[in-house]
Design a protein around this nucleic acid. Structure first.
Lengths: 147, 147
DNA sequence: TATTGTTATACTCTATAACTATA
DNA sequence: TATAGTTATAGAGTATAACAATA
């Protein structure tokens, strides 16, 4: 397939990142389909599970979703009783998001399925190389202000 | 900003790649704005410059764009007289794409501007680390069938 | 029958502006 | 005056299906 040369962009990460993101996104949609949840649901629920009580703004920043994007995502997850919005008592503007029991179960199930998406990556790269890749990406993200 | 933990997805590249792509995409839009060309123009023109005479299908595959997406992109670039569609004489279904002189000049100008997008990356990473990052991504892309 | 390019169409993702309620 | 969340809206990116021309 790919016997074309990137040319001027041989040392650019941008085009490659778009290719990679599109591929993973397509796989994610296919894998998430049985759950009937929008893309990003697992990412968001995983963040909530690890950081319960976070505000929507904190989660939106970390997940790289805009405010309105997060609202509709949480709306859907709340309707499905996977996530709960608890108003903070100390600052009543904030929602403290937490997973319901059903949410915890769903995260576990989804993770089993969705993590298979990256199986080809774990086959191609050694554990050290995968760690290296993630570490390099994290440093780049931080340098771009997405820490 | 980012003192939340990825949790279950600590070893997943998917969410990070989406963050990275969104950030670079936003910068790309801002940087390309003065040229009034759609996103992906530089990528496509750079591919054509390096592989003149390629068919639209070959370019679409390499750039990770669907057929219809490429058509509208080429339409725009052709209207601006940056790219020419030459019908192949041996297989008259194929368009052999080539840059015009104006296209060559525009690519050079755009590259100077757009390459600045990744300057923070080149500041954060040593040349060896950047090479490593690109090499790892290319291997992952190949493993995912995006060679 | 298969392939290249095209048209038409729809859906998802993301972004922005304006509003509310709290602080 | 500023911040968290919400609503409404628009735009870009991507996808699929159906079609024409050619192989």
């Amino acid at each position: 397939m790919g016997d074309l040369d990137w040319g001027l962009l041989s040392n650019s990460v941008g085009p490659r990142v778009r290719l990679l993101r599109n591929n993973l996104n397509a796989r994610s949609i296919a894998a998430s389909d049985p759950f009937g949840l929008p893309t990003g649901s697992l990412t968001l629920m995983s963040l909530i599970a690890q950081n319960p009580g976070s505000s929507q703004k904190e989660l939106a920043d970390k997940a790289g979703i805009t405010g309105p994007g997060l609202v509709s995502l949480v709306d859907e997850l709340e309707k499905r009783e996977l996530v709960r919005r608890d108003r903070s008592t100390t600052d009543r503007r904030r929602n403290m998001l937490v997973l319901t029991e059903k949410g915890e179960e769903t995260v576990a199930e989804m993770f089993k399925v969705v993590s298979q998406i990256e199986a080809p990556i774990r086959e191609e790269l050694s554990p050290q190389e995968l760690e290296q890749l993630i570490s390099l990406i994290d440093r780049v993200l931080k340098a771009l202000g997405e820490g």
